[in-house]
Amino acid sequence: MTSKKSNSKSTSTKSRGKSAHSVRFRWLRWLFILCFLLLCTVAVGLWSAQKALVSPLVLPVDGMRIDVENGSNLSTILYRLEEQGVLPSRLWARIYARIKRQSSIHPGEYMVPAGSNAMDLVGRLHRGDVTRYRITIVEGWTFEQALTQIRNGRKVKPTDAAASVAVAAASLGIEGNPEGRIFPDTYVYRSGATDMDLLREAFERMAAVLQREWEDRAEGLPYESPYEALIMASIVEKETGVPSERDEIAGVFVRRLGKGMRLQTDPTVIYGLGDKYDGNLRRADLRTATPYNTYVINGMPPTPIALPGREAIWAALHPKEGGSLYFVAKGDGSHHFSSSLDEHNRAVREFQLKRRSDYRSRPADTNPTN
């Protein structure tokens, strides 16, 4: 009896062992199948992701411009491009952006060249690689000319704050005539920049440049403030045809001020005439009293007469030493400088009273208008 019971228990134990082994085998088989399917799914997903991210966007041959407004987010832009058929899948582009931590984007106008893919697009939006435009304000222009240039700039947004010279001056916090108060230079900006954005940048640039140059000025100058130096710089800018003569012309005017002589410079007269100036400066104009007629007034005019560049400002603050008190245009853009009135009158007879047909007061390519 004992032997039979023992054999029965042994058989039962073996049976349960086989059954448990069979169950484990089946679980392992299903687990393997599930893992295989999961790997296949992942592989297909990765393949789809790679295809969606690497494949070129559907763009015209010359690329495509994308406008990103203030407040827009990446999801909005991707959805719009997917709806337009440009982007294969916004899902994978969003996942890629999250993984690369490039979900934040910058507003502006973007030029996406043909051949770009979703990764290129996300990176471009995140870096803020917006299309940039340039606008040039030329030395010697008036504030009004510069304002017109800015407001007509490509993709510049006009505002009521810069609707006129007077309004723009008030917006900048300038009392009275703003002439000469913005810096002539080439400015780079993004699409959507306002006219006041550019105007304020030019205004602040001029203030910074003038202050730096004022701190490094020569000794013994007849200016009581940086603004007076700016007035002189504007006159030098308008009188100079050859850049190398700026400091010499400034020297003439500084010495005339020191001797109590009138500046007697035509550009100030022309500025004072305003719209009355028709391109021909007459003797009667030189006798017409205006705050800017330096043939009539003593000292300098009340404001600058143009936008001086850095070189003209430097020249006004570092005038060339010497004895010349007069100069006259020679007709090739340069000037003849004289220390005495007799010498000056002889130069006037030589260069002004016998003008050639090719006479000009400035070199032909000086101060382009664009």
Rank of each mutant, 00 (worst) to 15 (best):
A93T: 07
A93E: 04
R94D: 14
I95L: 10
I95M: 06
R101F: 08
Q102A: 07
S104H: 13
S104C: 11
I105T: 05
I105G: 01
H106P: 15
P113H: 02
P113A: 09
A114R: 15
A114S: 14
S116H: 03
A118D: 05
A118T: 09
M119F: 09
D120F: 04
R124W: 01
L125P: 03
H126P: 04
R127W: 07
R127H: 13
D129W: 03
V130Q: 04
T131A: 00
R132P: 01
R134Q: 15
T136Y: 06
I137K: 00
I137H: 03
I137E: 01
V138E: 09
E139M: 03
G140F: 00
G140M: 11
W141F: 06
W141P: 02
T142G: 05
T142M: 02
F143G: 05
E144V: 02
Q145T: 08
Q145G: 05
A146H: 01
T148D: 11
N152M: 13
N152T: 10
N152I: 09
G153F: 01
R154D: 13
R154Y: 11
V156Y: 01
V156L: 06
P158C: 05
T159I: 12
A161S: 14
A162I: 12
A163D: 14
S164M: 12
V165Q: 07
A166W: 13
